[in-house]
Computed example of a mutant assay.
Amino acid sequence: MAISRVFTRASFRALAQRATLAPARQTPIPSRAFTASQQAQQTRGPPSPPSDDTADPAQAYLGTTKRLPEFNLTKKVVLVTGAARGLGLVQAEALLEAGATVYALDRLSEPSELFAPIAERAAKELGTSLHYTQIDTRDVAALHAIIADIGAKEGRMDGLIAAAGIQQETPALEYSAEDANRMFQVNITGTMMTAQAVAKQMIKFGNGGSMAFIASMSGSVANRGLICSAYNASKAGVIQLGRNLASEWGEHGIRVNTISPGYIVTQMVEELFKEYPERRETWPTQNMLGKLSKPEEYRGAAVFLLSDASSFMTGADLRIDGGHTAW
């Protein structure tokens, strides 16, 4: 029940007299007092990056060391598997823009034609570097050796984006054991062995770190009209793997989360649309935004999960599916 207070003219006069006689209250000084330049910045907008040619490019680029510093990845070393093309390469570029040194691992002998321009931009504009190594995550001995070499070279290991994975659309009645095992070996075992190798380096250097595994909304639901039981089971395994590794490695300061994208239009999906053109029309109707996603729409998630911006987040699945699974 609301309580109202009625003021008479006399009470108003009394209040005015009391305000005149009462000593002025001291306004607390904030812990970070504005300087004159900061006050000017409020009226002029954000400052321009330093123009001094001797300035560190990583500090100059977008002012990342001064703006939202918890997203800053400068001097961090991050591995991205499946980064020769597609979603993995897009996320690698986002990490570079946040300041990280990025090592891209993929089974392709050569990365896509988009890789070289990104590597050049990293060196010339971003003050960091992008490296490429060919490796199939099923070759566990070679995988561990490569990751150990990176750790020895850089003297640290800070992050992992595990984006390597395969897909096969086959009716369950026709799936061979060989095909199913290959799916699980790449998508689950490959992710686990990569995470294991990276975690050993993180523990060795004692700085902790953060990992993000690319799962899928298909790890939580069955996709209507998409016949891929082994793939969906593998992505459910990736989500559960992330939770369990988070529970084991939290004591070492290592965070492990997963990202579950919705339908992404990649080069591979474009080829799929040629075989099933109706999916280009029906898939967008199955989510709340009525559209399909682009690889670029997952850039922020990668930086968020690998940076201090998510420092109290582990064992979680970040579902980014346009509301597909929220119906």
Rank of each mutant, 00 (worst) to 15 (best):
L87V: 10
E113D: 04
T133S: 10
L73E: 06
W283D: 14
L245Y: 05
I188Q: 03
T314C: 06
A309H: 00
G209D: 14
I203L: 09
G250A: 10
P46A: 10
D179V: 09
A212V: 11
V90M: 05
A302G: 05
K291I: 02
G159A: 04
L89C: 06
K124A: 09
Q286W: 08
E169T: 02
A145M: 01
Q91R: 13
Y298S: 01
L318D: 15
R243W: 05
A122L: 05
R25D: 09
R107N: 09
E154I: 09
C228P: 00
S293T: 06
A84C: 11
I3H: 15
Q196C: 08
L305H: 11
E125M: 01
A236C: 11
G151V: 05
V303H: 02
G127Y: 09
S176I: 00
I166S: 06
E125C: 04
L87W: 10
A316P: 02
G323T: 10
G155A: 15
A326T: 04
A36E: 07
A230I: 09
A84Y: 03
A236E: 08
D179S: 08
L79Q: 11
L289A: 10
A316Y: 03
S307Y: 09
F213K: 01
L160M: 02
Y103N: 07
L95R: 09
W249Q: 02
M211S: 05
N244T: 08
L289M: 11
R121I: 04
P28C: 13
D308S: 04
Y263M: 14
E281C: 00
L68T: 00
P23H: 04
L105R: 12
S48A: 09
G323R: 04
S293N: 05
Y298T: 08
Q201M: 14
Q267G: 12
F115N: 11
I166V: 12
V221T: 10
Q39C: 10
L21W: 00
I259P: 03
P30R: 14
L306A: 13
E113C: 05
L143E: 03
E110H: 15
F184T: 07
L95E: 10
V6C: 14
A197E: 12
M217R: 05
F7E: 15
V303S: 07
T191G: 11
L245T: 01
I214Q: 03
A246Q: 03
T170G: 07
E120T: 06
K291T: 14
R18D: 07
G159Q: 01
L89P: 04
F213Y: 03
S129A: 14
D317M: 02
T64N: 14
P30Y: 09
K274Q: 14
A94M: 06
R9S: 15
E169D: 15
E278C: 05
G219S: 14
S311G: 06
G290A: 00
F273G: 12
F184S: 15
A94I: 07
G323L: 01
G290K: 00
Q26R: 15
W283T: 03
S234K: 11
E281W: 01
Q41P: 00
P50I: 06
S307M: 06
Q91E: 15
R67Y: 03
T194R: 07
T266V: 10
Q42I: 12
T54W: 02
G290C: 08
W327R: 07
T128P: 01
S112C: 13
G225T: 08
D106M: 05
A83Y: 14
L305K: 07
K200V: 09
G208F: 08
G209E: 08
L79I: 15
T8E: 08
R32A: 02
F205D: 11
L79Y: 13
G323S: 02
T101L: 12
